[in-house]
Nucleic acid binder design. Structure first.
Lengths: 354, 354
DNA sequence: TTGTAGGCGTTATCAG
DNA sequence: CTGATAACGCCTACAA
């Protein structure tokens, strides 16, 4: 699927340059040249950039003017080499295509970039092996900090991360013992919330669909425990492997029906599964929620576009990124936050599928 | 939406460390220490890492053993500072949440990472101002190359990029005059393909919904030109601004109906718009495609999950990233590809909405 | 095939 | 408040 016969050229709009304002020169400036122009020593320029308050106002203004005029940008490699600190922060995402993770990483980056950090995004693909490799590669990158959209389960990786000696932020769950900093949500509570909602709607015979490891398992456990307390009967639990699309939800729902027995409602550990289940249920002639209620988790983009809309448990994933960024800035500025373990709230979004 | 009352702890699975295999040490090793252990000079270790073929086999094996045992990773800042080349490649995405861009960036990174490059993802948000700022920041980052999921329209930015003196890859369109390398698709052809498909289905009075700048405009122009040739009547063209979700497609479709006049079919410049339009059409009691045909572009995740499935024009976005990575590797290895301007093919996916 | 000398651009340290 | 000096860790150039 590469070279076609003969593609037509696109007549792409070209916006001309405004008069004046020459483009920046080819070879990057060194701090020395800026210093020369401003009539100071290089170190003074350096100070203006890192600790402006320690430089005389007039000197500073003069230097800033030169910096502005020349478009000088310091060489991050030289800076990192000499100072031992890099301005790169690595965010590891278990699935780069996820809306939720994307929102979190986006707000994480938006919080850090104004402070001069570059956020580099890596992907771990829900795989321990990949995680090991990525953490190894951190020894090379030497970032200022790392953030994960998840928590690290493998002991070896936890130890390796701790020994990097840089801030580590875990997210998306609320473990007792984070490696370092944490911005999470209680998946256990999410499961319990699901059970409570289904019980409130009068459903008695319920089922669970979700991954049987990681956060899916945590939601399942919370669901299971709360269901028991509420007198619900968890008829079946369908475990799924890697989730790649709605199709997995359809398959899981089919597997659920194949197991037999009456079911009033199903809690799916994420909205992709729930949407797939809902579509499959409808295509089998079931009316949702009359014949079967479906409850999701995560409030994906599709959740409110199907009929009936998917009732789901949600939280502010952008806030996770933002708070993670703020915790990190606090830590790096030597005024660390009192509580480096934050939780975001869960909320129910009612849309009619329960 | 932050600190809740009292979240329950998640009992996250902890996988214990396998016996043996100590974790890596805290402070990073220097090349000097590796050299010492292997009984050679630092430069020899350096050579093993960069030009292994230039080192005696035995010496090399001995050094590799030490590297393996110690987990040595060279300091990228020192390396970049001295050699003047960084292993960072920056990929700018106009929308970090887009499936298509995500796939492209993912395969771009997958192609480059085995060769020792780190791919850093930035976002330009379809905004010229943002683009200027990001390109400025490149002067600081000094990456080995830059890739964009799009083409650069602003003359000033084109000049600034060219002057960075690094490989630049543009994608997603097929302009006559790329800055440097190009892996694109002809949006003009896509528009023409849409017109031809609608004409084939017997539709005569057609409409267009899409952005009136960038690639949307290119598809519109191709559509418009081919429609004229085919004797179709382009009754209305609805321009939309930034596209944030299905809701924009619904709104545009409503605007289209408000303009009045009979319409047989509508071509939407992307699937998000098309899906929104299709949902809105159905909610107004129209039967697709009997009362109105809808044709999309991009083959989004949702396109095959609605009823009827969305007929759309697609291409292999992962291939764009892969080819971009290959072109770049070729260029950086001093055996540049003969043709640094590649096109990917378009294909129609028939699903029933036309 | 291996090694020696020196510097990439910046900032920590200490002195003025 | 400002400056001189040296070093961060690696790799280019040249020499053996």
């Amino acid at each position: 699927m590469t070279a076609p016969a003969k593609p037509t050229y696109d007549d792409v709009l070209r916006i001309p340059a405004p008069p004046g304002r020459g483009a920046a020169a080819g070879r990057p400036l060194r701090i020395e040249e800026v210093a020369e122009r401003a009539g100071v020593a290089p170190i003074t320029v350096s100070r203006v950039l890192r600790h402006p308050e320690k430089v005389n106002r007039e000197t500073r203004d003069r230097i800033l003017e030169v910096i502005e005029a020349t478009g000088y940008a310091s060489n991050p490699h030289a800076r990192a080499l000499r100072s031992g600190r890099s301005n790169v922060v690595v965010a590891f995402v278990s699935n780069i295509l996820s809306q939720q993770f994307g929102l979190a990483v986006r707000s994480f980056a938006a919080t850090l970039e104004p402070e001069g950090f570059e956020v580099l995004v890596g992907q771990t693909s829900y795989s321990y092996a990949k995680e090991v490799a990525m953490i190894q590669s951190l020894r090379g990158i030497r970032p200022a900090a790392v953030m994960f959209t998840g928590v690290i389960e493998l002991h070896e990786n936890r130890a390796a991360l701790a020994e990097l000696g840089i801030p580590v932020i875990e997210t998306w769950a609320f473990p007792r013992d984070p490696i370092d900093m944490l911005v999470g949500l209680s998946n256990t509570d999410a499961g319990a919330m699901a059970a409570r909602r289904l019980a409130d709607a009068g459903h008695r015979r319920v089922a669970f669909i979700g991954r049987s490891s990681g956060r899916g398992a945590l939601r399942r456990d919370g669901f299971r425990a709360a269901a028991a307390e509420l007198g619900l009967d968890v008829v079946h639990e369908i475990g799924v492997g890697e989730i790649t699309g709605l199709v997995d939800g359809r398959a899981a729902f089919t597997a659920l029906l194949d197991r037999g027995g009456r079911i009033d409602a199903v809690f799916c550990a994420n909205d992709l599964l729930a949407t797939g289940a809902l579509i499959e249920a409808r295509s089998r002639g079931l009316t949702v929620p009359r014949d079967l209620a479906v409850l999701g988790f995560g409030d994906n983009d599709v959740a409110d576009q199907i009929t009936p809309g998917l009732t789901t448990i949600t939280f502010d994933s952008a806030a996770i990124g933002r708070i993670a960024g703020e915790l990190l800035l606090a830590r790096l500025s030597d005024t660390p936050s009192a509580e480096p373990r934050r939780a975001v709230e869960l909320a129910l979004v009612e849309r009619g599928s329960v």
